[in-house]
Design a binder for these strands. Structure first.
Lengths: 358, 358
DNA sequence: CTGTTAGCGCCTTCAA
DNA sequence: TTGAAGGCGCTAACAG
């Protein structure tokens, strides 16, 4: 039995070891490591020793001495949602590429940033934080502001999502109104005039913003606003199912919309299932458009037309901005609006060509 | 313009502050914080001061002084894959509940644990690591062993997945042979005799183990082994598509299997799409069974029968074990086999009842 | 039971 | 250009 092999951990080599080996003081070692002033001679000796012993300065001590520990925090919601997991992937990759590590903090979807969580975050040994999901989505601007300002006192932050009034920080955002416009105009081109928005939760600021864009765009295009009361029941497939069932059950066949714009692909997935169950064919009798271009959308029947917000890109971008800010260079208060792309597949009937409804 | 609000960061309160306020030495403060010996009197004074100032000991210094920094590492692959993101979610929640934070390290799917990554991991200030995905899957036992042993010298580790020969550590695993048996016996009950395994990659040790189980179970049940050469082309939906197309194109209609067992739900998703494209109805003409019970499976047409490995549970479990080991109690070398459950839905024709093929 | 002191590994004035 | 020394916040061994 090879039990107890664990924890041999030969004492890690320190700055002293290489100072000794190079025949200089630790101060000199520290200097050459940080690219400070040093004579060519000692620099060479030190570098040789470093290479020899495979020395790497200790994160902990470096941080204790007031330096960067090269680690970032990603505060997110519900990593199981593919939007967030893609974002997370993008963030982790970007962090690693830049020599940073990424600590993950998730919150349950419903909760906003509460006192306990905040304490936890504040105690983490990180150089900065990227915030996305409920921490920047749920609640009003005022509610969010308080906590975020407090967090910001301790470290620089970058938010992903809608901008928060009164918070000056770098913000990565999608122009949700563009995503809505692209969706609606695609549907209009295909002849649809009766379009309904489904899913989402009014707890979410993104949702509210996207829904507002939807309403104003519908008006602008001279379309009838079909159901204006809140149809949102969440962002899950189950929500899409329920929401679709509810919507269609209270509308007569001739009042029924011919197209559904879903809050995200999960909602669209549920809607698709419910439509099938009700015997309503997609896209012949009902067009459906999602949002997020999640991995499963091309494989649905029919393949789902959707909008790609490029979440990996959001994650990458946020991390790069954060690292830039930590480095102390450039603007620390602006929004960067990222592009989104309409991905046309078959669920809106693009293959059927433009039709005339009613 | 409220620029430059950032970084006011009022100096954080230290053990000295509360020592002063309580009128004792820092040693005493340290003792009451760690539940050491102290008189009731000083304990009370110290606790009052702590509560008063909202003091919380500094992670960094604590760790530098040789204590636990209460942080864990999760080394995983491809968080976008719902299996891993669910696992990640479970791990993060468990860590947080126990007062630990979770640092995330992802690797690209193909790579095994290489020198660079290892260096990166070794330099992270964490108390232990959970390893899952390519770090413990890709490559032979010998290849993996070397790196893992090195990592283990620095911190305790828990692996999720197939056990690695020669590595003594705690291991969380699913009994893949059970998952295969459950799948096959379900199909047999429904009358299937011609069953084929699709997808996966022989780079993965889990895959190899699951496939071996498949082959031996097929033999045991006296079924014909349909295609025994490697049909694996990866774990993605695309792989499922390709693999299915390839399989069916080289088999005549009467040699065709009546049931497909997919390496995971993603592969099943792609297979489903390809079957539809080829005009083969599921489940009437072809049964299909997945693995992982991913969120989208109930919403497919038909809803996918699959096996739930309970990845959240794996993540939670691994973290709890790791924390236990860090605490220094109990066994440090054993495998914990977690249950898996067959989730019967419609893609194998359960609603159609048992049939007779051929 | 409590305080003093010496590190943990690194960075940074300050003299030399 | 370099080294000595102090400090970051905390723990633990050692006296008292």
């Amino acid at each position: 039995m090879t039990e107890r092999v664990i924890r041999l951990a030969k004492k890690q080599i320190s700055i002293h070891d290489i100072a000794a080996k190079a025949g200089v003081s630790i101060a000199t070692v520290s200097r050459v490591m940080s690219g400070g002033i040093a004579s060519e001679a000692s620099r060479r000796k030190v570098e040789a020793a470093i290479a020899d012993l495979g020395y790497e300065s200790n994160t902990i001590s470096r941080r204790l001495a007031g330096q960067s520990g090269r680690s970032l925090l990603l505060m997110t919601t519900d990593v199981v949602n593919p939007y967030y997991s893609a974002l997370c992937q993008g963030a982790e990759t970007a962090a690693r590429r830049n020599g940073y590590s990424l600590t993950l903090a998730c919150r349950e979807l419903e909760n906003r940033l509460d006192e306990n969580t905040l304490e936890h975050l504040l105690s983490l040994p990180v150089d900065g934080a990227v915030l996305v999901g409920s921490a920047v989505e749920n609640g009003t601007d005022e509610q969010l502001l308080d906590n975020l300002l407090r967090l910001q006192q301790k470290m620089p932050i970058v938010t992903i999502g809608p901008r928060i009034e009164g918070l000056s920080c770098v913000n990565i955002t999608s122009d949700l109104s563009v995503s809505v416009k692209k969706s609606i105009s695609h549907l209009i081109q295909l002849g649809h005039r009766r379009i309904c928005y489904i899913g989402g939760s009014s707890d979410s600021r993104s949702y509210r913003s996207r829904r507002e864009s939807f309403i104003s765009e519908v008006a602008e295009q001279g379309l009838e606003l079909l159901v204006e009361d809140n149809c949102g029941t969440g962002f899950s497939a189950r929500a899409g199912e329920i929401c679709t069932a509810r919507l269609l059950s209270r509308l007569s066949d001739r009042d029924r919309p011919t197209a559904l714009v879903a809050a995200n692909d999960l909602v669209a997935l549920g809607a698709l299932r419910q439509l099938l169950r009700m015997g309503i064919r997609v896209p012949e009798e009902m067009a459906l458009i999602g949002c997020d271009n999640q991995f499963f959308t091309p494989y649905l029947t029919p393949p789902l037309t959707t909008v790609d917000l490029h979440p990996e890109d959001h994650g990458r971008c946020a991390v790069e901005e954060l690292i830039r800010i930590i480095g102390g260079s450039g603007d620390v208060n602006y929004s960067q609006v990222r592009e989104c792309s309409l991905i046309v597949r078959e669920s809106c009937g693009a293959l059927l060509g433009a039709r005339h409804f009613d």
